[in-house]
């Protein structure tokens, strides 16, 4: 059984939001619905200034808070690593939105259910890479099987010392960042 994960190379990211929009197009989201948010920050004093970008989305955690706080079992973890939401079981209580330390979920008022990145579950089932990975113009994103030591994601995690965002929170995310 694979364990799907992603590596995002922050040394390549230019903050163009192509991932954000590709995700919106893939899932037919409204213009204001962002499953991927690209945060930016600035460090230093002129002229030694650096601007950094940080794309944040559902981390498909190994120990997902959203799943443990869900009162109905609507949020669930699949054996291949994906964290998904069963819309028919969701009562729209938003516990998961509050529980997610990465603020990855947004509320869809039209159907009364929180939504988030689904690792393009329909695409990866066909062996096609997620839309954000395909859209990235600088190839900062790599998707693959973290449990396979020969995979590209595993190689990047080891060789480029890719790290999880805020590992101290204990959620064990499956998205790793190269900084």
């Amino acid at each position: 059984m694979p364990r799907y994960g992603m590596v995002i190379d922050l040394t390549k990211c230019v903050g163009c939001n192509a991932c954000t929009v590709a995700c919106q197009m893939e899932w037919g989201l409204e213009s204001y619905e962002h499953w991927i948010r690209v945060l930016s920050s600035e460090d230093g004093i002129y002229p030694a200034v650096t601007r950094r970008f940080l794309p944040v989305q559902c981390m498909h955690c190994e120990r997902p808070t959203c799943v443990s706080v869900c009162p109905t079992g609507a949020s669930y973890k699949r054996r291949d690593g994906l964290v998904l939401i069963d819309q028919d079981r969701c009562i729209g209580c938003k516990y998961c939105m509050v529980g997610c330390p990465y603020q990855a979920r947004i509320f869809n008022k039209k159907i009364g259910v929180p939504e988030k990145c689904r690792f393009c579950v329909h695409r990866i089932a066909k062996g096609v890479t997620p839309a954000c990975v395909m859209a990235c113009p600088v190839e900062a994103r790599t998707f693959g099987d973290i449990s396979d030591p020969a995979s590209e994601v595993s190689r990047l995690i080891i060789q480029r010392k890719a790290a999880q965002l805020r590992p101290d929170l204990g959620n064990v995310p499956n998205i790793y960042y190269i900084r």
């Binding site: 163009c16 939001n17 929009v21 919106q24 213009s31």
Partner: peptide, 18 residues
């Protein structure tokens, strides 16, 4: 800006949201 192309895209709601 990376999100916009010349003067052509500012009216696009997806780009305007960013």
């Amino acid at each position: 800006e990376a999100m916009h192309t010349g003067t052509a895209t500012q009216g696009n709601p997806y780009m305007a949201a960013l």
